[in-house]
Simulated assay, not measured.
Amino acid sequence: MSLLTTPAWLAAMGGKLPAPVPLRADGVEAHAFVQHEPRPTEFFDLWHVLTTTAPALPICREPIDSPPWVPALMVMVPGYECLPTGPRAGEPEALHALVSAALAYDVPTAAFLYTRPGPLEAVLHERGFTCVPLSMTWDLHLPGTGMADYLAAFPRKRRKELRREMRSVVDVHAEEPDLDELTALKCQLVTKYRGGADFTAERRKLAALAAMDSLTLVARPQDGNAVGFAMFARHDGDWTCTAVGFDYADERSRLAYFGTAFYAAAEHAYAEQARTISYGQGAWAAKRGRGCTGTPLNGWVRTRDARLAEVLRRSAATTRREVL
């Protein structure tokens, strides 16, 4: 089971997506919800996901009009992946039953968003869903047993660059999270990319994430003020980066992302014999440049609405994944 399907994660992300609805059949189930109203800028909103030019999402080469995107059944977990669970989650017959259950909902459109390559995608193709490439999710598979092995995996020139960068990072330490301090940093990041942040809501989420089996790495110069942090959740022997935040007004935060989320994280993960650190979507250049490998994520949509079906056909034909 992925961290993103655990009760602890779903509880921590409560409210991030609309209220879930049941979707299960024959030993397999999936997190789903019905979107009744447009939610522009949200990464589960079909119009936004399939037409935006945001760097982490697809680029559509043709203008798209406004057909009825909602209501629609959306199948995905908070964390932006589509991950069926259950003892038969990898069996095509059970997945066909799950897809049938999705199509049985009294809405014209069903969408499975952010699927990884595998049996679910094969079933969705067989069932006539239109596939649109969406994004990439990134994982760092740690080679060997320590940082020397991590650096050795890079070409010589890049290895020298990374060593120089690691020397320039301010001190990073594992700390018990000061939620008010970390929330202030997280709100700076949210405001930078989304235009505003709710301190109370962000603090609640960080508190729930910290209550999991977590590790918080803080970039804290000698003057004592934190300039960045990265929080990780341990699950089934692997790690997932669950939150980051930075003080953009302090120039020392410039390398804090790399120092907390990658270099210090790799050292601690090696010490705990973790093999993989998952980072999710976005910031692909930073992640690939520090050893992560990408897995493509796709959107699969089927609709009874003829206008939306035509838009989906055009989107699939004219969209390219930003990172291949």
Rank of each mutant, 00 (worst) to 15 (best):
F229G: 01
R203D: 00
E93W: 11
K192E: 14
E176Q: 13
G146D: 14
T191Y: 07
E175A: 13
A110W: 03
A110V: 13
A89S: 14
A230K: 01
M147C: 05
R167W: 11
R203C: 05
V190Q: 12
R127Y: 02
T109R: 02
E165D: 09
L120Y: 03
A197N: 06
S168E: 14
R159F: 10
D198P: 06
G195I: 10
C131N: 12
R156Q: 14
L124T: 08
A226R: 02
V227S: 01
V170S: 03
P221V: 12
L140G: 06
R203E: 11
T130V: 06
A207C: 09
D139T: 15
K186M: 12
A211L: 03
L142Y: 04
A89K: 09
C131A: 13
E161D: 15
G196E: 07
R220W: 01
V190N: 06
T183K: 04
R220I: 12
A219V: 00
N225P: 15
R204L: 08
V190I: 14
G228S: 04
V123S: 06
N225G: 14
A102G: 10
R159P: 02
K157I: 15
R194K: 14
T85I: 14
F129N: 00
R204D: 11
P84N: 11
A102D: 08
A219H: 03
H96Q: 12
M136L: 15
V169K: 00
S100C: 10
L151K: 08
L185K: 00
G224S: 09
A152Y: 03
Y114K: 06
P119G: 12
R204E: 13
P87S: 12
R194Q: 14
A104N: 05
L182Y: 03
T145F: 11
K205G: 13
